[in-house]
């Protein structure tokens, strides 16, 4: 297991390094510079600015400097926002996104699991059909449409909830729901198929043959075995939450990392784009690692074998 984790950590570092390099050179290829909005500056002033961002050096020197800074956790300075360090910007905004993402993940998976379990137990009944309907809708309709509709009907028309910003619990409700719908649908449908499969397996018959009551069979033997694979969809869910926060934060004007990313893309704030990209990549790779390790820990079959497949 330890060897496996080390190997995975190695991959993680390589991946992150490649992404850092890739995004660095992509940025160099792009037109535009931090000076674009500052055309009125004199040449001497421009030089000072370029010097400040280290943009006067040849590209290889910039690259080495960039990687060196990166290793020390320094992501550079924002091109657009008055000398703010990218690290600070990210650190200010990550907690908000994390909070939103966590709410959505918890609510989404919990509701989804319950739906999926109910659908599996009452297979081919109206419970199953309605759960299926809900999950098809949840998977099909893009989160930004949900967000828009919620904002318009619940926020504007009915005036029940605040339509923007972040801080009070009322403000958290609509973005959380909009963001939770996709993970909910995924969890529901995954849980349903997993549970149906588990309930059809031989050891469930063994459990029944012992004379256990149906509740014990379903929950002690069925649920645990069906829950273990749910961990594997956590990776895709993390991705969906990332794409989700990008639009949801924009729609509800939530000062999180997603909203920041969209703004920086719009304003060619390259250092922030690169910083955020790296953060997303790190987050993603980290989640995948956690998922794999977690899977190994909770599934006794993998625990000793030391790795999947």
């Amino acid at each position: 297991m330890a060897k496996y984790i080390l190997q995975r950590l190695g991959y993680m570092v390589v991946t992150l390094y490649l992404i850092a390099t890739f995004s660095f050179f992509l940025m160099k290829m792009l037109p535009g510079s931090p000076l674009r909005a500052k055309e009125k500056l004199s040449e001497a002033q421009q030089l000072i600015v370029l010097e400040k961002y280290g943009l006067n050096d040849p590209v290889p020197v910039q690259y080495i400097k960039y990687i060196g800074d990166l290793l020390q956790g320094d992501l550079g300075i924002s091109f657009q926002m008055k000398n703010q360090a990218v690290t600070d910007i990210l650190l200010n905004r990550i907690p908000i996104s994390a909070q939103l993402g966590l709410y959505a993940l918890l609510i989404g998976t919990t509701v989804g699991m319950l739906l999926g379990i109910a659908a599996a137990i009452k297979n081919n009944s109206w419970v199953d059909y309605s759960a299926n309907f809900v999950s098809v809708i949840g998977i099909s309709i893009p989160s930004f449409i949900f967000a828009g509709l919620l904002q318009y009907y619940v926020g504007v028309e009915l005036g029940l909830l605040p339509i923007a910003f972040w801080g009070t619990w009322q403000q958290a409700i609509m973005p959380t729901i909009a963001l939770a719908i996709f993970p909910m649908a995924i969890a529901a449908r995954f849980m349903r198929t997993e549970m149906i499969e588990v309930l059809g397996s031989d050891f469930i018959v063994t459990a029944r043959a012992k004379g256990l009551n149906e509740t014990a069979v379903l929950f002690k033997h069925g649920l645990r075995n069906a829950l273990i694979p749910l961990v594997t969809v956590m990776g895709p869910m993390a991705v969906s939450l990332m794409t989700g926060t990008l639009v949801i934060e924009q729609i509800f004007s939530i000062p999180g990392i997603g909203e920041q990313f969209v703004t920086s893309v719009m304003t060619d704030d390259f250092s922030v784009i690169m910083g955020t990209t790296l953060f997303f990549a790190f987050f993603f790779v980290f989640i995948i690692l956690i998922v794999d390790v977690l899977y190994g820990i909770i599934d006794p079959r993998i625990r000793l074998a030391g790795g999947k497949d």
Partner: peptide, 28 residues
């Protein structure tokens, strides 16, 4: 009734199944 049957199953009437690879709960 199913409830009464549960008192008999496993106590008075037990079953051994065909495939030992699948008839045990892998996570227990």
């Amino acid at each position: 009734k199913e409830k009464q049957m549960q008192q008999i199953r496993g106590k008075d009437i037990s079953t051994i199944f065909q495939d030992p690879m699948t008839s045990l709960n892998p996570t227990m």
